[in-house]
Nucleic acid binder design. Sequence first.
DNA 1: ATATTGTGTATATACGATATATACAGTTTG
DNA 2: CAAACTGTATATATCGTATATACACAATAT
Lengths: 124, 124
Amino acid sequence: MDIVISNTSGDPIYQQIFEQISAQIIKGQLPSDTCLPPIRTVAKELRISVITVKRAWEELEHAGLIYTMAGKGCFVSSLQPNVLNAKRNQLAGEKLAKDLEYYKTLGISLEEIIAMLKKNYDKG
Amino acid sequence: MDIVISNTSGDPIYQQIFEQISAQIIKGQLPSDTCLPPIRTVAKELRISVITVKRAWEELEHAGLIYTMAGKGCFVSSLQPNVLNAKRNQLAGEKLAKDLEYYKTLGISLEEIIAMLKKNYDKG
DNA sequence: ATATTGTGTATATACGATATATACAGTTTG
DNA sequence: CAAACTGTATATATCGTATATACACAATAT
């Protein structure tokens, strides 16, 4: 499970986990019915509480990306590529709409945003 | 004072206020030494506590955008246009760098981001 | 069968950030 | 100098996040 927790980002841990796992599922890196690692294992690896991992798993289940079998584990849902792609576009679109509000508030033009994007995209 | 509070955005009230006032200062809509309205007035208009407004004012002061005279009020700092522009670019740049992380996590290409931007920029 | 080990779940709690009401202190103004 | 205005400080409430610990269910080895 490739998860990286940032303590400086300000985003809640459970949300960081959700974003990373959901992205992996949406990109097809975690095929249908793949068994996610036990929450205790993830908690130990990341040195956080099992409850926090469970919270992330709950969000994933609520988003329809995984399903739970009590006593067995959690598994990646069976979703068609077009459904995954729709979810991808939805997540990106919602985020972009909100991000745009801030840039507009600051009076940044479309051209300026694009210029900054091109400068930054290949860095980081 | 043009301030709009959203209860659905998830962002703290004081932060929403900070972002909007700082943007107005940075864009030159609030000239140097303009007296901000009393925190009680803003609190009454927005139907929030004076403490929350004060919190926003504190952030503005900490950012060097306003200064306080006890008993008199809070005023817009005297900053040169190039300083304001630097602050604008800094705020936008930091935000964009963080936003980009998420798009990259979702595997969105630079071209896709630009396409979404162009579709959405003139809406909202 | 049943004890053991592994899975997710529920309860009760701690902590920090946000937001609040109310009382306080400094400055202007009549 | 009193009244009316400014920002400030203290103590409190509430909510989201994160936690430890105890619980319930399923698989599996004996």
